[in-house]
Write a protein that binds this DNA or RNA. Structure first.
Lengths: 218, 218
DNA sequence: TCATTATACTGAACATTGTTCATTTATCAA
DNA sequence: TTGATAAATGAACAATGTTCAGTATAATGA
């Protein structure tokens, strides 16, 4: 009776155990030298057993990607819900920084989510939910007149491009002679955002001043 | 006598023939399903023959990367030398656009140069010469006072991050619902550059002050 | 307790991979 | 033609992903 339930649970546990081991091997040895047989040996099962949980190597890999996406998404949502009533532009900057930080702190997750080779004609990853968070943040900036009127969609995509650029480069090219990370990341984010802020015309000077003060205590 | 020369030449021709065929297979079938044997069959030689020209699959792959890098570099240099006496900021924008365009027009080259998986502990690719062009362009903008005084190195790296971001995303995620490409690319570039341009005097001071405060407590 | 049945797991097998190397073939100078 | 040098082969090896007929294990009903 509940034996079948116990079995299901055990199977699920085994599945996550496989995933954990697989991720470890992927990360440590690189995608190239990962092998199903190595994985089997690691979890102390026969190679065939893995195929009871995953259709093939590709699907196993895909599951890892999915996992990493979820983690990134959760990190972003935590941030979005964490500071709901703050200045939206500040929150946005914080969000962008958090995105980059997540990538740098969890490079293997970021690799899985965005960088690793992706076979053609594969169902698209779910970047969308994660992107929604960004779109929402930009939208609030426009609504509350911190940004001059801009196309929310275009702006969101452009911002994503910029922060993905710096994140992926820092991860993928660690030997490049980068300047100090924080400085570089800030410059990318400031460059990308500052041009969007309301202009300091004569009549808007006051608000602009206030806004700068707000920004400064990020 | 000159027979050995003829041989050398023939060998070189064969080498480039192999590279061409390899690139075609890589691009068409994906890295995963490329195989030395397929390549051998394609060029109508035995598998062993490839090893007369390349130590192994890795080195063959590396040669393709090198090739792609060179092409990108040449494209950038053409641009740099093409419009020497123009407004440097305009040239820079043009250069950034040209970078993105090169990537989009030659996605396989860009993939090889930047996106494809890179085995650890490999000698660093020569991004540096290509990056020099960018650094030079930014430097001219600062010299001729089109940009407010900025750290050339940091600015160059930040710009690279932004354009690499949009280039790689457009290449790697063709199914994402992007807005119009030109519009998006322009927005990324304008966002990144406009914040660097010289402003009216009092504006510049405000901005500089704010930035300093922001940076100081990170 | 024992037999039945559903499930988990194995391990041998297959085709394919990267790479090596002794052997054969082609090329050219003398 | 002969001898030497380089080019090319293809058989061999170990390792890969994946399948599947068979075996062990555990749960169920009597």
């Amino acid at each position: 009776m509940n034996a079948i339930l116990r079995r299901k649970q055990h199977k699920a546990e085994l599945r996550t155990q496989i995933l954990e081991a697989a991720r470890e091997i992927f990360v440590r040895d690189g995608y190239e030298s990962f092998s199903m047989r190595k994985l089997a040996q690691r979890i102390e099962y026969s190679p065939g057993s893995i195929y009871l949980h995953f259709k093939n190597k590709e699907e196993l890999f895909e599951s890892l990607v999915e996992e990493s996406f979820d983690r990134l998404l959760r990190a972003l949502n935590r941030l979005k819900n964490g500071h709901p009533q703050q200045d939206p532009a500040a929150t946005l900057k914080k969000g962008l920084r958090a995105y980059v930080d997540f990538g740098l702190r969890n490079p293997s997750d970021y690799r899985f989510a965005f960088l690793l080779r992706r076979p053609l004609h594969r169902r698209p990853y779910k970047v969308h939910p994660a992107f929604d968070v960004l779109r929402y943040m930009v939208g609030r900036c426009v609504e509350e007149k911190h940004f001059r009127t801009v196309d929310i969609e275009t702006t969101s995509q452009a911002l994503w491009a910029a922060i993905h650029g710096i994140t992926s480069l820092l991860i993928q090219r660690p030997t490049f002679p980068w300047v100090a990370r924080r400085k570089l990341i800030d410059q990318v984010i400031n460059n990308a955002i500052d041009g969007l802020m309301v202009r300091t015309d004569q009549e808007e000077e006051t608000r602009a001043g206030v806004q700068h003060v707000q920004l400064s205590h990020l």
